[in-house]
Amino acid sequence: MKIGDYLEIPETKKVILIKLTHADLLKIWKRCGLTANYGASYLISSCPEKKDVMNSVSMILNELLENAAKYSDEEMGSIELTITLSGDSAILQVDNIIDEQRYMIFRKFADKITNCEDVNSLYIEKLQSFGENDGMKSGIGLLTVLSFFNPKMGFMFQPLKEANKYKVSVQAAMPIEGATTCR
C-alpha cells in the first residue's frame, strides 16, 4: 500500500545502497549520524557547488535512520538506505521491517502527515506537549523533517510472508536546485 508521493526507483538509478542492521545501530548509536553524513557527502560530491544542502540532506537521512533503528522488528532488523537522483530532487529512502502493532500506528501516522494541510501547526502542538509529558521517545523525527525541509514524503507498506511483519519504505524527496547539471 502506497501513501503520499511514493516513487518506484529502478535499481539502475540508485546512487547508493547501504545495508545495515538495527542491532548494530542501537549498539553504536552514532552509526546513524555517521551513515547519514556519509550518504550526504557521497551524494553531494557529484555536485560540489551544492555543498550548502549537504547539512540538510544529512539531517533528513539521520532522522530516517534513527526511526528505523528505534522501531524495527526485533527479529528482522535489516535496514536499507537508498539515495537516488531524480530530476531536480534527491530521493532519500530508508526501508525496514516492523511488526503488526507498529504497522498500525505508523500507517495511521503516515496518513495523517501526508494529508495534513498545516504540518507546522502539528509540529508546534507536538513540541508543546513535551512541556507536560516527559516521554523518553519524542516520536517527532518525521514531523521535524517535514516542517524544516518540506520534502515530498512517500510511504510504502508491504506485508511479508512471515506472519504479522511488514516492510516499510519511507521516502523523502528533497529538491536540489540545479541537480540535473550534477555530474
Binding site: 549520524g33 547539512n55 539531517m59 539521520n62 532522522e63 513535551f130 517527532i140 523525527g141
Partner: peptide, 18 residues
C-alpha cells in the same frame, strides 16, 4: 553546532517552555 537531532530540538523546546 552542525547537527542537533529531533530529540535534541525537542529538549531545547522543553527547556524554553520551562
Amino acid at each position: 553546532v552542525e547537527f542537533l537531532n529531533s530529540s535534541g530540538i525537542a529538549m531545547l523546546c522543553r527547556f524554553i517552555m520551562d
